[in-house]
Write a protein that binds this DNA or RNA. Structure first.
Length: 110
DNA sequence: CTCGTGACTCCCG
DNA sequence: TCGGGAGCCACGA
């Protein structure tokens, strides 16, 4: 049995709509720990497989993929692009269009 | 109980 | 823009 924080994190990750992304910090804040961004990352790579979480919809606060090339970066980018997320030339995601905040049941779309 | 580990974030310089 | 340093905290051994 995981802790409450872990379950909250999983719950939030599961709520991320298709074609949207959020940040580790936002997930952590939504789970009750504004400073628990690192735990989110840990929980993710620790139980994304077991719980089939959309881990690829979580990026760092700059809108960039944190995974280093060859360690999942390309796989995550592929999955996101497949959902319609657009990357800019430098590999960042436009938060004005693709950021989703935990708690907002309806994502705002153009 | 302590310790090591992170797919992070903030603060300078 | 980029990098180093410090802070952060859940979880497993």
């Amino acid at each position: 049995m995981p802790a409450i924080f872990t379950e909250r994190v999983r719950e939030i990750i599961r709520r991320i709509p298709r074609g949207k992304v959020t940040t580790y910090g936002m997930v952590a804040a939504g789970a009750g720990n504004g400073a628990g961004a690192r735990q989110v990352a840990r929980i993710l790579h620790s139980s994304s497989q077991a719980y089939a979480l959309p881990w690829h919809r979580v990026v760092n606060r700059k809108g960039r993929i944190s995974l280093p090339p060859g360690r999942g970066y390309e796989r995550q980018q592929e999955l996101l692009m497949r959902e319609g997320v657009e990357f800019m030339a430098d590999g960042t995601i436009d938060f004005d269009r693709f950021l989703w905040l935990p708690g907002s049941g309806s994502p705002n779309f153009p």
